[in-house]
Amino acid sequence: MTIHTLSDVSFGEQLPTFTPDTGLLNVKKFAVAAGWDAPRFTDHAAARDQGLPGAVIPGIMSQGFLSAMIHHWAPTADVKKVDTVFRAPCIVDEIYNVEGVVTDIDEETGEIEIDLTITNQAGETRVFGTAKVLLSQ
């Protein structure tokens, strides 16, 4: 169901899971656009030389995935805050699920809060956080 107004939203509602493109080419495209074109994000071998398990998806790209997930669910949502904690690196070319669930609804202001998680295939949380989103009433 596509969300348009606050009345469409219910507490505890699960946003549709988004599986983003974490392939090296797409991450490179992002890194260039963001001005974060460093080898640790775009080159597996160089990242391993730095002690990382492989090229790492920039945390700011994770935020972009989360914001995109919110817009897929509620195209007119006005994202007012995305607050993320990076628990463990997300690795380029690995599959991640981007998920959200509504945990607070303020009927007066039209603001909702969404729990955000990015999990790997083992179900481990790599990134978590919250978003504050405004919807028309």
Partner: peptide, 17 residues
């Protein structure tokens, strides 16, 4: 410092789910 949950929302969540 790394917590993002309000206690009242924990309560609501436990009951709602």
């Amino acid at each position: 410092d790394d917590g993002r949950a309000k206690v009242q929302n924990y309560c609501q969540w436990i009951k709602a789910r």
